[in-house]
């Protein structure tokens, strides 16, 4: 069965370590992959596509060497493969203009300011992934263990299993 990945793009290894750690509860259902830059992320996205898997959530730092996080997200928004991916900008600093750009052009779904609390990060990830699976997946029961149960229950009842 095709898997739904979470990808984290962040140039600082220490920050990446803690992001993975915070999201580890989701990993049993949604494998996490990481990239240190937008270029690495492109390779990663290609690999995931070639393996026949999907990307449910992209967590992206904004300030990185090479292309900025927002640039990567705009690119993802324009690619059919990653268009439906939920996109979250995770950053310690981004000007208002960049945020607006991200919301308008990259269909940025959420914005997390550094430093974050694990509850905050997990909640955002869970919310976004729940939206993703409800929109994209048929079989929702398998996600009840880690995602938003109430929303999934609603979706399951309404999805036409009758």
């Amino acid at each position: 069965m095709a898997e739904i990945y979470i990808i984290c793009v962040e140039d600082e290894p220490q920050v990446l370590d803690v992001i993975i750690r915070d999201l580890s509860a989701l990993e049993e259902v949604f494998p996490i992959e990481v990239a240190h830059s937008a270029d690495e992320a492109r390779v990663l996205i290609r690999e995931i596509r070639e393996d026949g898997n999907h990307i449910g959530l992209a967590l992206c730092d904004h300030v990185m060497p090479g292309d900025k996080g927002v640039d990567l997200m705009i690119e993802m928004q324009q690619d059919a493969f990653t268009e439906k991916t939920r996109k979250v900008l995770l950053t310690g600093q981004a000007g208002l203009e960049e945020t607006i750009e991200a919301i308008n052009n990259a269909r940025l779904n959420r914005y997390i300011a550094k430093p974050w609390t694990p509850e905050q990060l997990v909640k955002v990830a869970v919310d976004e992934l729940t939206t993703y699976v409800i929109e994209q997946e048929k079989d929702l029961l398998q996600y009840m263990g880690v995602l938003d149960q109430a929303r999934l229950q609603e979706a399951i009842r309404n999805k036409g299993y009758i």
């Binding site: 600082e12 920050v15 370590d17 803690v18 300030v63 310690g92 600093q93 550094k114 430093p115």
Partner: peptide, 21 residues
Amino acid sequence: TSGLAHEINNPASALLRSVDY
């Protein structure tokens, strides 16, 4: 300040979360 926010928030995040862990 915006530069500094980024420069400090990054290690601060890592620091806080690592300690929690």
